[in-house]
Nucleic acid binder design. Structure first.
Lengths: 187, 187
DNA sequence: GTCATGGCCTTTACGCAGTAAGGTGCAATA
DNA sequence: TATTGCACCTTACTGCGTAAAGGCCATGAC
């Protein structure tokens, strides 16, 4: 007999497998049965690790993708630090663009808030007063999420033979980010 | 016998009824059977008017909510015109926040593009060169959609007893919009 | 050894979803 | 009156999430 053992099923492995399905086949094809197949387990086994079932699974996906705070204390110009962090955040959102719709739904209260708070703190330490920093953090997060949504949609559309393959998304992103940063610098 | 006639079912009435369900009970409770009930018709009757079924229904919802171009030729300062249009767009997005997740998914190719193009044209007539206007239009649309997502989420969260009921969303929105417009003015 | 315990997984079953296929009834036309 | 075609209904199928309960097996106590 060859080895019939398998990795033990854990919360982390479940969420990893789910993310893999979403990235490869889309959110609509993420079902408990398919997820069970990917883990070589019956669908109901998942409920042992995620008692709240699919709700908890989707919450986990959101947390995995959206939670990415930046350190408030590192050095350097705040604009440059935000640019670097934003580039990484955008990359993550696009890599897992299938979960973007879930960011919008009310799931997972704290997932975005921690990240937003870290941005706000960076802005606060840069000298903006509290209300301005809060607005700025929201503006930045809004731009990041909205742009990711537009970019994911645009890329999917032109892959499917839509009109414009002519958009340089990297340029669009950094250009828009610079607009927001420039606006922030003079507030 | 009382009148047993009913309004004839039309594409428009279907989409109106669907929007009503989504606004009142959430996207998750929009089903063909429930929609049929609302129209006093069996679910399968809907397929006569929307042959592609639920796909076509959701596309219709997106179009109804997201299509809102602004006229390129009206007079006034471009900043003020954008502010006025953006306020209306935000209101519409929030009124139908249940369909926001659908904006993100690839549905309905042209729904957002027409609106974006109209913003780009306004910016172009304001003196920005083409590439800058395109980036600016994208930045604005990204901010609008992202902010609507954050606001809808934040409002739902604090209604459900979450932490911050202390956010003045009107102020946040106009503040963020001013940041973007200020950034645009100097690009 | 033996036996109970408890963690991990499977089996079975239920209600609800979207929708394919084909049937029904009625108004307009010929 | 006979015909046609549109609007709607009936039936039935597959797949979904998950409640409930049962099986298996390593571990530790005696």
């Amino acid at each position: 007999m060859t080895s019939q053992h398998r990795e033990p099923v854990t919360r982390d492995r479940i969420i990893d497998a789910a993310l893999h399905i979403v990235d490869g086949q889309g959110l609509g094809r993420l079902t408990m049965r398919r997820l069970g197949d990917a883990l070589e387990v019956e669908a109901m086994a998942i409920y042992h690790h995620l008692p709240r079932g699919k709700e908890e699974l989707l919450d986990g996906l959101v947390a995995h993708v959206a939670v990415d705070p930046l350190s408030a204390t590192a050095g350097g110009e705040w604009q440059d630090r935000l640019r670097g962090w934003a580039a990484g955040y955008r990359e993550r959102l696009l890599e897992h663009s299938g979960v973007l719709p879930l960011l919008v739904t009310r799931r997972n209260p704290a997932a975005l808030d921690g990240t937003t708070a870290s941005v706000q703190e960076v802005l606060g330490r840069a000298g903006l007063r509290e209300e301005t920093a809060a607005t700025g953090a929201h503006t930045l997060m809004g731009y990041l999420i909205g742009h990711a949504a537009l970019e994911a949609r645009g890329r999917a559309l032109s892959e499917a033979g839509g009109p414009g393959g002519a958009i340089d998304w990297d340029l669009r992103f950094t250009g828009g980010l610079d607009v927001v940063l420039a606006g922030l610098a003079q507030s």
